[in-house]
Structures are given as C-alpha cells and as structure tokens.
Nucleic acid binder design. Structure first.
Lengths: 332, 332
DNA sequence: ACAACCACGTTAAACGTTGTAAACGACTCT
DNA sequence: AGAGTCGTTTACAACGTTTAACGTGGTTGT
C-alpha cells in the first residue's frame, strides 16, 4: 500500500541504504545521487514510516505536553506556543490533559505512551509528589510553573513571588489599602503567589487580614466569581483584589458587575497570565504578563537538550521574563 | 533498557506470544496462565511499545485533530472535548494547528505523520480544496463545520443556516430593524451563516443593506472590534449585530464599550459558538450554543467506525444540536 | 606506486510486536 | 487402544526502518 524505502530505492536505481542516507542527511553523497533519490521520493510521495523509524532508532521526535486542561485559555495559549516552538525544531507535541487531581499518576501510568515519547513538558496543578523521580519516568522531563525549588528536574517558570509582589504593590500605589487575594489554594502556585502578596503588604506596612485571603475551589471563572461574592459579603469589603490568575479575575469582575460596583473606582482588580480575554474584557484587565513565547521556546529547548543526551548536567532553572500590564481594571 | 515482551515471558515462564495474547485479550487462556502473566507484567512494570505494535498492526490508535489554532477558545474547548471522547475509547489525539491559509496543504503534506495516524478530524478554515480526495490522504477523514455539501467525506456540523436565521430572528423579535452581520468572510462558514442571516431578514420583510455586512480579515476579537468601528462610523449605524462567532462579538462589545454605547439598549449583540468567555463577559453574550460534547463524541465515533473498516458505506452527514442562549447582550 | 580518502553497494541483524499455522496435551467417542 | 476433537500454547516469519561490518572501485595527493 504505502510506498516504502525499497520502492524509492528501486525507482532511483540505488540501494535502500543510500536512500536512507539521503533522508538522514548523511554527509557523503554526490549531488547527482541525492537528486535522483529526491526525485524518486517526490514522485512516489514517499514518507518515512514513523513507527518503524522510532522502533529502530529509539527516538520518535514526539514530546508530550501535560497540562491540567486545554480549554483553559492560559494553557491553550501556552500549548499553541509550545506546539509552534516544537514544530520549528521538527518535532511534534502530544497534548495530555491531566484534568486535575490524579495528574501525576496518569502521567506516569499511561503518559509515557509506551515509550513513543522522547520526553515530557509537565505543568503540574496539584503539588507534584516530591518523590516523582527521573527513574519513574525514564524520560527527560521539564517542569513548568511554580514548584518547591531544589527539584531534580529542569524547570522554567516566572518568579511568581516577585511578580505577585509587583502586582500587589501596584494596587497599593494607586491608593488601595484593603487588598484581597483570590486563589490561595492548596496548589504550590497559590502558596508562592500568596507569599509575594504578603511580602508587598508587609513592605507597605499594611495589616494582613486573613479574611481577605480566599482559597476557592479551583482556578476558573466560576471560582473567581464565587470568591468575589464572599468578599462582598464581608462587613468591610476590600477596595482591591489580586487574583492569582486571569480566569479568577474575570469571574470576580463578573460578580462586581452584577453587584453594580464600578471597576476600578470602587474595586480595582489585577490578574495573572495575560490571557487574551482580559485584553478585551470591559473593563480591560490589568495583569502580570509572562512572555509565553519565551517560556515555550526555552522549555522545548531545554527538553531537547536533555533528549540529545546532556542528561548528566545539573538541572537548570530558567526564569521567564514578565511585565506588569496596567489596564482599565486598575487605572482610573 | 525498557522491559519488553520477552522479559515478561521469561519471568512468567511462558512464550512471548502468550504474553501478547494476554495483553490483547485473546479468549482462550487459562485463568492460571493469565494470572501468572499479569503478575509478571505488574512486577516488571511492563508497558507495550507503541512503535513496534503499530508497525506490526498497521494501526496506532492515534488520530489527528487539525484545527486552525488551539489558542482560539472555541477550538480549545472543542479539542478538549474531542480529546476526552477519544480517550474514553482508548485512543489518543494529536492536535495539529493549521494556522490559517495553507491548511489543507500542511495537512496532506506532513499531516499524515508518516502513517502513524489512523485518521483525521479536520476543521477547515479556508474553503477546502474540493479536490481533496480520499486518495490524497489514504486515511479516513471526518470534516467539522460548514462545507459545501455533497462532499465525499463524513461530516458533522451545526445547521448554520438555520442557527444563523434563529439568531437574527431573535434580534428582530426584540424590535431591532437595522441588523448588521460581522464575519461575512471568504470562508465557507461566512457564506453559510450569511445565508441564514439574509433569510431571516427577508422573512421579516426587512431591507437588506450591503453596508451592514462586514467581512473583516479574520475571526478574532480584534477583527470584531475593527468591524464594529466601521459600523459605528456609518451615517446610520445599526441597532443590532449578529457576529458569526463569539470572538468577533467580544471584540465588537469592546468597541461598543469604548464608544460609550449601552448594550443591549443602544446596540444588541449575538454571537455564535458559546465559548466560556461570553458567559462571563459584561454584558454576558447571547449566542448560538452548539452541543460541543455531542459534536466531539460523534465525530470521534464516525472516524473510528471508518477506521474499523466501514470504508465503503456512503458518507454520513450529522447535524449537531444547538440552542439559542439569550443573555444580557440582547435581553433588556 | 602507495596510501588515503570517497561514494556507494551488499548483506545481516536488529528494534518489539502480532498473525499464521502448527504443535501439544487432555479429553471424548467409538 | 486408536482416532478425532477441542482448548491452549508456541515457533516462526513478518512489519519498515536503521546500523554495522565489510567490500569495491574510483579519485586524489605524494
């Protein structure tokens, strides 16, 4: 059915091995021979059989990207960037939705896809079991996002403490004094961002009110909306909110709109991630904007470097550049 | 390195083939033997090698989903659903971003991924070359979304004419008379939805003003925003807009907010797709809501049926159920 | 002339899995 | 006891590719 190497060889009048050499850019080939082979390849519309190749080479040029859910805009945007970055390097990304809790399990259990995959970029949502080791996976792994430092894996992440501190400081700088935080969940992301939030409050000499730190049950719009309702029910509601991601912020804005409150006049809101929705929302959302393309490109590069064999080098920890985007939700 | 079939066989004291039989649920196996083998599998943490398996079987249990871009919320949500639907059936989805124009080319050229893939679910953005035939791909293909009917492929799509007609009629029913359409682009989607839009106008005896049909350059928020600006610059601006997707609508809403116009009082807006953003936007967005889970499940089922061998059956054309969600952008 | 390359060819052996067909018991039936 | 039957297990050959080892003429430089 499908044309194979030997068909190409027959048509080009060369050996199978020579065709293989052409395809794999083996250096010592006459221009003439190469042309003949390439013509045959084109004529027969030959495409190498990935299965056979990866069976033989032990490498597939496939990597996996494990994210909590691809319908979440931040991850969708990130996935798109990573896909692009990988494609530029001739490799294909397989996206795996871990869907919350049993993330790590699923990953290790069926995630390896029977050795088809050369490596994994993993964006954990729950705290990654500290005991997840290289031995468990057998494949190179790059972690995305916060995670208790000192891990044994390559990692690329925003300096969330600093970024959160910046975001909070921005709210303080526009005169807010009662600043709430939404997203203080059980995740490591929540913990790290709270740290930055508290740091900023402390630096400004502001009191720290536990009632203003809401955990919520997740990181979606509905969770942000629910947390915001709780905050509004407080005897003394906040005059600013730092949401640990944009989705939470958009949910919070929805609740504020329903309550007839003006943003930023009554309540200012800052998010984190800079997803596109926020740039078109009314009001537009101020947010921490990580450089997603940079993140994607470096995550892929790091992983490919490991796959290429630099397995022994110490784990690397890259910090993603970010900016604070000031938009309507905080700028009067 | 990795444990293989023969390792398991050695440990269980049976032949390689028997282990294979156990894994593939071959019916005639003693409980005793099966138990032994399964114990060995567990003990060695054996996982089948996908490459070898698919080389041998000619089937990989991988399908591709080709969409314009995964960062677009509708496609992200759809991708998530399709991924889930496929996973339920034990197959894996590989997502391919066609990124606009050369979609079909890319698909056919490198999309087949060297015969790794068993089939494709293809959501074309540009008009699919009518000459794209089964022969080109060699693999089963299911089309998503509008497309000049009478094709030679299985297809699952919303009845866009009817849905667009419903959306427009809804605008008429709330008293609007000057209704614009955004998204009348060069795509088949644009053409089909315009048809429904015009049909509704005609049915209501409303005049059809070409100046109110905007093509724009794409289907993103920015395109919607730009088109809306054009409409507002008209001597006689519209009192309602039907946007051919939610992203356009969200962009339009942004422009309206900037212009200080009230929605729906001054201008009512309806979208298409029912992405989550619209449900949290201020105002919340009225829209046509296709049943994405249904769509995903049926697309996958259709494709798998073809893959399973029902290749000769006539192509099937499934119509996705939808509802009109009336929200703030049209309800006073 | 001699070596040192170069550009290929030939052959064989993997990679890990499954389909085919045949072998092996343990039965039952005469 | 022998032939037939059934259920269970196995040996062997693929699937399409790459790698290795070895060989063969040709070209070039000394």
């Amino acid at each position: 059915m499908a044309t194979r190497l030997s068909d190409v060889a027959a048509r080009a009048g060369v050996s199978v091995k020579t065709v293989s050499n052409v395809i794999n850019d083996y250096p010592h080939i006459t221009a003439r021979t190469r042309a003949k082979v390439e013509a045959a390849i084109a004529a027969l519309d030959y495409r190498p059989n990935v299965s056979a190749r990866s069976l033989r080479k032990g490498r597939s040029d496939f990597i996996a990207l494990a994210i909590p859910e691809m319908a979440s805009p931040y991850f969708a945007e990130l996935g798109a960037e990573i896909s692009r970055a990988a494609k530029r390097r001739g490799i294909t990304v397989l996206i795996d939705q871990t869907e919350g809790g049993a993330a790590a399990e699923k990953l290790v259990l069926d995630g390896m896809r029977g050795q088809l995959i050369d490596g994994i970029i993993f964006s954990p949502i729950t705290t990654v079991p500290a005991k997840l080791t290289v031995a468990d996976t057998g494949k190179p792994l790059v972690l995305l996002g916060e995670r208790p430092a000192g891990g044994q894996f390559d990692r690329v992440a925003v300096d969330s403490v600093q970024a959160s501190c910046d975001a909070t400081t921005h709210l303080i700088s526009i005169g807010r004094r009662r600043i709430a935080a939404i997203g203080v969940g059980g995740t490591s992301t929540g913990a790290v961002r709270r740290k930055g939030y508290r740091k900023a409050l402390k630096a400004a000499g502001l009191p720290h009110d536990p009632a203003l730190e809401l955990a919520g049950t997740g990181y979606h719009r509905e969770d942000g909306a629910a947390s915001m309702r709780e905050l509004l029910a407080l005897p003394e509601p906040p005059d600013a909110i730092f949401c640990f991601n944009d989705l939470l912020a958009l949910g919070a804005l929805r609740t504020l709109a329903d309550a007839g409150l003006r943003v930023p006049d009554d309540v200012a809101v800052v998010g984190f991630d800079d997803i596109e929705d926020g740039r078109y929302h009314s009001p537009t959302l101020s947010t921490i904007s990580p450089d997603k393309a940079w993140l994607a490109d470096n995550a892929v590069a790091l992983l490919l470097d490991r796959i290429a064999g630099n397995g022994e080098a110490a784990h690397r920890d890259l910090t993603v550049p970010y900016t604070l985007q000031i938009r309507e939700s905080t700028a009067g």
